[in-house]
Amino acid sequence: MRYFCGIDIGASAAKLVIIDQQRQVVAKAVRRSGVDYTLAAQRCLEEALAASALAATQLAAAVSTGYGRDNVPWATERRTEIACHGRGAFHYFPHRMTVIDIGAQDSKVIHLDEQGRRTGFKMNRKCAAGTGAFLEEIALRLDLRLEQLNELAARSTKHIALNSFCTVFAATEILERIRAGEKVEDIVRAALHSVVKRVVEMDTLHGPLVLTGGVVAHNPVLAQLASEAFGTPALVPPDAQFVGALGAALFAAELDGRPTC
């Protein structure tokens, strides 16, 4: 049996997936990307190999993606995270669609046709609005852990809006809400809603909506808010955080047998 590896080194987390020839996931690993991407990739690989009792020599090809894609010396090829999220999402939903990946540092809108070919894409502009970085900042302001956000937002009963594009200004708006005595769960929901608003502004949908990335994986409320905002149900693949790494592994499988440089 031949195995294929995809490694997605994002701004916040490194995710690794190993698949077999039947495109079945046999191992996964995730850890913080930290400041040494090469090391993070190596550790993920060791962890996944150990968990699946595979040897590195059994990996026929590896594709790296994400911010740290150039820092994986053992990668056979590199692809952008735009290509990999598209490929990974198409594996679960093989039809025309718009994939929205909300990452720690940026968000992407990816349009795929019925064959899974990309027909267009957009990344958010330079700032943190509409990304996980925004939520990190808000959690810090509210003295919360990131893991608490989803549960709090799910309890919210009142809609409040944050208007600012700018993360820092939005944080100031939050201070005003706290002063006004708003409940923390309503503020958290407003912050998640703000991420969705930034994404809605980026592009229009072509076909069904699929959400991927760690932010959605950790905050299912976001999918509900996105469904409301776009007026269509948001599909979320299993292990949404690993979709980019899975896409990379699928590309690695496609490389099999092809000469590589």
């Binding site: 692809r79 952008t80 735009i82 990309r118 267009g120 894409f121």
Partner: peptide
Amino acid sequence: RTNIQAFVEQ
């Protein structure tokens, strides 16, 4: 860089 690379991939 990522945008340009992704565009050429497309």
